[in-house]
Nucleic acid binder design. Sequence first.
RNA 1: GGCGGCAUAGCCAAGUGGCUAAGGCGACGGUCUGCAAAACCGUUAUCACCGGUUCGAAUCCGGUUGCCGCCUCCA
Length: 478
Amino acid sequence: MTLRIYDTLRGKKEEFKPVREGKAGIYFCGMTVQDKPHVGHMLAFVAGDLIKRYLRFKGYQVTYVQNFTDVDDKIINKANEEGVDFQEVAERNIREYFKYEKELNILPADIYPKATEHIGDIIKLVRTLVDKGFAYQSGGDVYFRVRKFSPYGKLSRRRVDELQAGARIEVGEQKEDPLDFTLWKGAKEGEPAWDSPWGRGRPGWHIECSVMSMKYLGDTVDMHGGGQDLIFPHHENEIAQSESATGKNYVNYWLHNGLLNLRGEKMSKSTGHFFTIEEICREFSGEVIRFYLLSTHFRSRSEFGRERLQEAGAGFERIRTLCVNLDEMKTALPEEKAAPAAPEAEQLRELIRGVNEDFLASMDDDFNSGEAIGHIFRLVREVNKFRTDYPGVLEGSDELIDALLESLRTFDTILGLFKEGLPRAGLAVPPEVEKLVREREEARRAKDWARADELRDRILEAGFAVEDRAEGPYIKRK
RNA sequence: GGCGGCAUAGCCAAGUGGCUAAGGCGACGGUCUGCAAAACCGUUAUCACCGGUUCGAAUCCGGUUGCCGCCUCCA
């Protein structure tokens, strides 16, 4: 099966062909660390993680780079407000990011380059652009000459003449053309600055990504991702800088995740219309948040809210329950070789084969995790149905149990649903809870329902739920 | 104003020419249960509207309405 990927530049799905056989280089635009991460940021990184995990699963040797832009106007402003060094603001937010990266089961990137650690490389690229006539110095600043790069606008489907009206010139800037953007920014008094051929200053916003992407992944990278709000101007400018400097194609597949909505409107930092991941993590587990984010295709614009997470949590629980039940069946299997599988078993084998195939087909179709999750639910429902239709058949067959666990493990490897691997049955139940359960069983035998219900409430208060199954009481975490 | 996207059940959401329009949540009815829980069964969609292309359209084309995004802060 071949992997097809929607590329923003071409505007359609294309079969994935790596630059180097068997390898994949991915650059994902990380945060400008001016603030704590919000849920929208985390969607982007979960999407990047999904892509990385799937490519690895397909056997590619993946190098995944996610940057931190740790110097810019907003970080400097914030630092000034707080009266601290800009690096303190950056480092604090980077720590926050890592906390929630872990929380959402996002695998660590191979490299997390920072702008401030690549000033020398940035200066080198700016100098190349100046030498080639694509950039010019004006005062202490260096600007990119947009009209000199004729394909400008190809990613965002804009013509240079249409952009003219919206172009912005800030006080003190002396551009040849309002469209030109800053590559190097001369430092004002009290701002962080580095020496350069154009005087002391700091990098403009877009240049660090071009530099770090090409440094770690080569002039042409397989994939470059980020939020749709980065298409223009950020990625458009990256293309202009990089391709002007190298004369080569910069990125083969542009991947852009849809932005999250909150009550129908874009989540956005500037309007204060957003949830930080911190506040959402206080109410929901990282696993449920991730599951919800994956249940919609990352490219579509989707609605975020507490109700959505509650719904996702209920569905997630069904998958978890099946995993736990299978693990229990596995432990309960008799020592001696299982009885030859009943004729009905073939039905289940076929289901597993079908779901495995469909799951991978969905993933191959532009990483369609939402559809893939639909197939998992189909498996859950059909397995539960099989158990009621043919009691004991699955329960007595290590072959079937293993086949199911193997499928689920594969799905988990690709989607990263469970932080600790597939949920196991073993549950540490405190002795006092076990005591309450025993007492409740006695009350139930005595048909003292009031007492039994009271004990059930107390067990619930202790954080556990008890279900009265045919084989006896079953305790689980509430 | 320019460019682009979207509209599928009570809610969320797959599906981009052809089997009965995935899946989840919720709701209602049923099975099981002391009551629950978990699980199962059943019910819950003329795919925004109008016209066209086609043997055949949620899907392609044109138009209408509504919503949203970008147009140099943004994941």
